[in-house]
Design a protein around this nucleic acid. Structure first.
Length: 140
DNA sequence: GCCAACGTTGGC
DNA sequence: GCCAACGTTGGC
């Protein structure tokens, strides 16, 4: 099972808002980058992803899972290639993992978060996932 | 098809 | 508020 990291500016869509949606979840809309779109299309139902607050907070705050695989983004123009997946909040990190802490951890030097800082939907390797869960105080 | 100009993202 | 990275657009 693959793991992911999804970024959102808390001003636009925060972890708290995601949690309020409960088991119903919410469409992850607004992705307008082809690399990010390809990652959305690779996601399988049940895959888990970190929820990262960009710009404000700059930390991984929670874990979500994919409740519905990709379908056309309802916020895009008809005929556009953009897609969404539905995500459901699972649990918050006991201890949010900040960007600064990630930068300080040599084992996480290769994370897409650091290498492709503008990519909003990105893969996380199994090793990175396990370590980040440990750092965040949750079970992998 | 190249490349300069411009817009957006996101860290600082 | 600034700036680097980088994707997109448009003139040639």
């Amino acid at each position: 099972m693959a793991h992911w990291l999804m970024k959102s500016e808390p001003d636009a869509w925060s972890w708290e808002q995601q949690v309020k949606k409960g088991a119903k979840g919410e469409a992850w809309s607004g992705v307008r980058n082809h690399t990010a779109k390809l990652n959305l299309m690779k996601m399988k139902k049940g895959d888990r992803a970190f929820f990262y607050h960009s710009n404000i907070g700059k930390e991984i705050v929670g874990i979500v899972h994919i409740a519905r695989e990709h379908y056309p983004d309802p916020t895009a123009k008809a005929g556009d290639p953009w897609v969404v997946v539905d995500v459901v909040a699972d649990e918050p990190l006991a201890k949010p993992v900040s960007l600064a802490v990630i930068k300080d951890e040599p084992k996480l030097k290769e994370m897409a978060l650091l290498k492709y800082s503008r990519l909003s939907v990105q893969p996380v390797t199994d090793a990175e996932w396990k370590l980040l869960c440990k750092m965040g105080g949750v079970k992998a």
